[in-house]
Design a protein around this nucleic acid. Structure first.
Lengths: 144, 144
DNA sequence: TTTTTAAATGCAACTATATTGCATTTATAT
DNA sequence: ATATAAATGCAATATAGTTGCATTTAAAAA
């Protein structure tokens, strides 16, 4: 547990969520990683003290409140990352590109890379965008 | 079964795949739909005569040969569509935008909408792109 | 046409991800 | 200190996908 705990507690209160162990633990883990974090990874590092169902519900609550956003990787598994700040319960603003490394499987939030505009056929109403680039990340490319 | 069956048989032979019932059936179904088709839908319409595992293997073989391409929808479930023609066993060229309707759940191939270019941080090597827009499709918007 | 054989299928079992209902516990307001 | 809505734990279930192995079959060879 890092010393951000006080900040996290405020974040929970602000969103009408009770300050509980599992929730603080998830926030702590997510905030200490440089990439989005998969549900299986979270489940693994949180151990058996927290029930799987609780983890799912924590993630769902956080997503609904705009605290974290979900990215599906190339295999359809859910990955989560803390939102950059301007998200809330009504809308997410995480329309940046994500990068899924085929080697280490990490999912990076390319927070500075916006999804470029494009046209859709008449009649289609776009509400959300999800762009995942896959390939080799900088860290893995370095190893060669 | 439509009268494309002869064309499909040639397609299978060309790719070194035997002309079997399940394979022809999958090609027939996919080619008669205006959107990508989910694995669960295929499983449902193909009934109990074809084993689930066979369906998975047929889809896998087709994808590897460049006959169909896979798109994961907003829920991470696999959807399949016949490739536009210039795909093969070595590489796919399906980098068009896909549209996932939040109402009817269909996944459309916007074959004419290319994924626009963007820059990634130094060191990242992009090999594949996957852009899914979600919202309301033209057909569903009309119903209101 | 018959035989051969690699490829394809079917079946059973299993893994992983995710959800639901209900009883119990707990954070927080009173 | 207590009441209560919220959160958690547990059991069961659902859904997507995979693996190993025995059997069948499409298509090539004889």
């Amino acid at each position: 547990m890092t010393d951000n705990s006080n900040h996290f507690e405020k974040l929970l209160i602000k969103n009408g969520l009770k300050r509980t162990g599992p929730r603080l633990q998830v926030l702590d883990i997510l905030s200490n990683r440089d990439s989005a974090t998969s549900q299986p990874y979270l489940e693994q590092v949180m151990g058996t003290e927290v029930d799987r169902v609780t983890l799912y519900r924590v993630l769902k609550a956080f997503e609904e409140k705009g605290i974290i956003h979900k990215v599906l990787d190339n295999h359809g598994t859910a990955n989560y990352a803390i939102c950059s700040g301007n998200c809330n319960a009504n809308e997410h603003h995480d329309e940046h590109v994500h990068f899924n490394c085929n080697n280490c499987k990490k999912v990076y939030c390319l927070a500075n890379v916006q999804i470029p505009a494009f046209k859709v056929p008449a009649g289609f109403k776009v509400e959300n965008l999800n762009l995942i680039a896959s390939g080799i990340c900088a860290a893995c490319a370095d190893k060669d």
